[in-house]
Design a protein around this nucleic acid. Sequence first.
DNA 1: GTCTATAACTAGATAGAC
DNA 2: GTCTATCTAGTTATAGAC
Lengths: 208, 208
Amino acid sequence: MSTKNKILDAAESLFAEHGFNGTSLREITSKAEVNLAAVNYHFGSKKELIKAVMSRYMNVLAPLLEAALSDICEQENKPSLTEVLTAFIEPLLALNEVKENGTSNFLQLLGRGYTDSQGFLRWFLTTQYPSVISLFVNAVQKAYPELTAEEMFWRLHFTMGTVVFTMSSSDALMDIAKNDFDKDLSIAEVIQKVIPYVAAGVGAPISD
Amino acid sequence: MSTKNKILDAAESLFAEHGFNGTSLREITSKAEVNLAAVNYHFGSKKELIKAVMSRYMNVLAPLLEAALSDICEQENKPSLTEVLTAFIEPLLALNEVKENGTSNFLQLLGRGYTDSQGFLRWFLTTQYPSVISLFVNAVQKAYPELTAEEMFWRLHFTMGTVVFTMSSSDALMDIAKNDFDKDLSIAEVIQKVIPYVAAGVGAPISD
DNA sequence: GTCTATAACTAGATAGAC
DNA sequence: GTCTATCTAGTTATAGAC
């Protein structure tokens, strides 16, 4: 296994657990059992390392998501919101084949990146992967055409918030659920629980 | 105005904007125009300062919320979920009288504290203000008795996520809304937008 | 109570030997 | 490509003069 990959793996799990700001290069290199200087040699800076960690997943996820959402946009009959949101499940679970716990790690990283380091991840997603976002908006528009662009904007951000926040604390939540209800849930099952919630939220009647 | 309050005010807005980890004592004291050593003299440590900033709001909010939720729990007829969630609005807006932008700042702090510094705020809320949480759970149970305790647990955390995450990036979202839709929203209007969303989410039909 | 000065430590980044 | 050693700049916290 290459030094570069050892660093990526160590950085990924530490970033997911403690956030980007909360993880030092020294912690990463000592977990990866490589030299401190190796990060700057291979990646140039901590910021570039963060991008590399995210890209490893986004490069797998983006094409799968684009395909799934395109299918929905191009189909004849009107999709349901649940259908649109369910389109995310398979691509997300495919990340488990990139690495063990890939889905969970990626979603936690997404959550970290949204709140850490003043919206750097918002920039990363909107500039590097804009087509996924616009396909998603199109799919939702097809499922719920009465929704105005403005209301759509808010509800999509609420949804992003729900998912990202849930996932960034999913370890803690799964622990509590195990203690209180004796249920051992997988990340896939948590996703299954959140979909009816966000589908109902996005599909809420327009209050005006 | 006392040094102690100058520190609290400066810390509050910097914490809200850059998170707890992302704000140094030097930034706080220079914004407050007091000496660096004053923080440790008045509060003992950065951690205690964080608690003091949160307590200033929680001590106003908690009794108001308890009263509003108690009313709902004790009323004869069955409340709607919207009613339960709407009970939060007045207490939250009352924080604007503690300080200008109090509501917005407090909700942003809540968001920061949930993701920063490994769940310290979760501990803070559940240990220092447990009665608010249990009253809220009771109110929701009364509004939607078919919901199992386990499903309730998940949906309440999804709701917490939606609200907290939205508020922690509310400045950015309000900026985008202003640019894209030429709408200048207040924090009260954002709350009005999020309530139908979370009410629909909590009230979603039980899938399984 | 408020200040200066500084201790004690950690951060990210890099120069240069091998 | 990998190492040690070190630089610079940042952090929290505190001792002691006023």
